[in-house]
Amino acid sequence: MQANLKVKRYNPDEPQPRVRYQEYSLDVLESFTVLDALIQVRDEVDGTLALRCSCRASICGSCGMRVNGRAKLACKTRIAELAPNGEQLTIEPMGNHPVIKDLVVDIDTFFNQIRRVDPFIQPDSTPTQGEFIASSESMTNLLGVMNCIMCGACVSDCTVLEVDDKFIGPAALAKAYRFVDDPRDDRSSERLKKLNDEHGGIWDCTRCFQCVEVCPKDVAPMDRIMEMRDMAIEAGNRNTPGYRHTESFIRSVRRHGRLDETRLAVDSIGWTNVPGLLREAPVAMKAFTKGKLPPLFPHKAEGNSAIREIVEKAEGGSK
């Protein structure tokens, strides 16, 4: 079958480096992955094409890249599935990583983010004889995050990192979860407090689901971040806009059957946080002049009592 690749190229060694796209047409086997095709290009057509790859079996995490705009492991992406009739595939380096050359990106930032979460187990003491005793369920529960191969796909497509480079990011937060939830670790509460308090911590995820969708190993980083929010609240960390937002949200729905957006904004910032409120004032003014300011006192939703019942049922179920 035919594979048509359009590969983003960049070579910093050129006198005037510039980004360009190069097209390759290849005869490939039906079973070929994007990586197989790129290796064929590199080996037989164009030895200057730079990419990282190693295991070819989705376990080393080297070949993260964007295929048709989405982060993927090239070794796990079959051409026949994406382009059965020879449609052109656009291959680009991962996002949110500086490009070094062609498809090779700088992974230093990625691993510096991992370092931020103190990614090693910290027990107060280790057994003098034999292993830690830990339940099978607790270990099986951590298997999901241990599947992370640090390929960077989640970081590539993270919409928060696009605008806020202080965000620890989905991979490092999933890594943090691995220790927070490990019964052998004795720093869980300190870890949670730090992740709760710091700029770029668990409350800065916008729940856009990108990391869950692109992760090639089903680690679902966002789900771990949400679990850590619950754990942080349970552990008494309540002085965050995120927590206040959650509380205000549910209070509003319970009371009015709908969202009181004005109050939600003020609650989240905090009624006594004057600088924070002033910072948002221009936004409110702008919304007002465009007729987009929500009502100061919300209308009650129709069927309010039915909604309240649903809320109570949901809360009861979660307890």
Binding site: I121, P123, T126, P127, E131, I133, S136, L142, D182
Partner: peptide
Amino acid sequence: VIELEHMGVIFSRDDEGRLG
């Protein structure tokens, strides 16, 4: 192997919580 477990390896467990 025990040392690896102490370093944090999430080994599979048996019903008693020991290494399976």
